[in-house]
Design a protein around this nucleic acid. Structure first.
Lengths: 110, 110
DNA sequence: TCTTTATGTAAGTATTTGATTACATAAATA
DNA sequence: TATTTATGTAATCAAATACTTACATAAAGA
């Protein structure tokens, strides 16, 4: 039985996000993915395992290779979570922006 | 100087995502946020600190209270990262879906 | 069959995370 | 001024994370 993983936890790691970007362009086998990173193959393999367990990718055996495919449907889950905030950033003149404008006087970052 | 945090790492934790959902509806002070969770106030405070450092929220002092506001612009960063995958889930009949359909025979999950 | 290639897996480890409790401080109120 | 309220901070700790190296296995090709 496969362990279930949280999608948000899966995309938290920058290496895993890079892997997703890579295979979004073209499905790749494990070694080809590992070549793109400055870390050991087992390390990359573990990242892919996390992605697999989260449902963000699926693996498919092809001879002695295992190819990694992105699962767009699961990526959509993240998009749907964002839905609740979308209105906020589309409303340019909401209260929060005013608050942030006022804050510029007492806060100097960014 | 404030430590910079990764937005994706910030939303990785379910408690922090809940906090964001809460204050998206209405800005709240720290204690009011903590009331919604079954954990100690300092624990919630640390979560909010992470959100603050990631830029997803801003704090504003009001008397002895500190209110927590969502920063929609930063939420948009996540949305923009998703952009690269959007085409994939909008194309219903791409190669990946065919692969997934074939996979149903050798894989029994979900 | 022997070798190479692609991958799996196990053991070990440093660091980070997510929580706790205890105590400190600063603003509002009696 | 004394107390309450809202919050900050420090010390501690267990568990999870993100790696490493070493070895095992399974499929393809010489």
């Amino acid at each position: 039985m496969e362990k279930r993983r949280d999608v948000f936890q899966a995309i938290a790691d920058p290496t895993r996000r890079e892997i997703l970007s890579l295979i979004a362009k073209k499905p790749l086998n494990l070694n080809s993915i590992a070549e793109n990173f400055d870390m050991s193959r087992p390390a990359v393999s573990q990242h892919i395992k996390v992605l697999d367990e989260s449902g963000l990718v699926v693996m498919r055996k092809k001879g002695r290779q295992r190819f990694c495919y992105i699962r767009p449907q699961k990526m959509k889950d993240v998009d749907q979570w964002l839905q609740q905030f979308r209105q906020l950033w589309e409303d340019r003149f909401d209260q929060l922006d005013q608050v942030l404008t006022n804050l510029k006087d007492q806060d100097d970052e960014e």
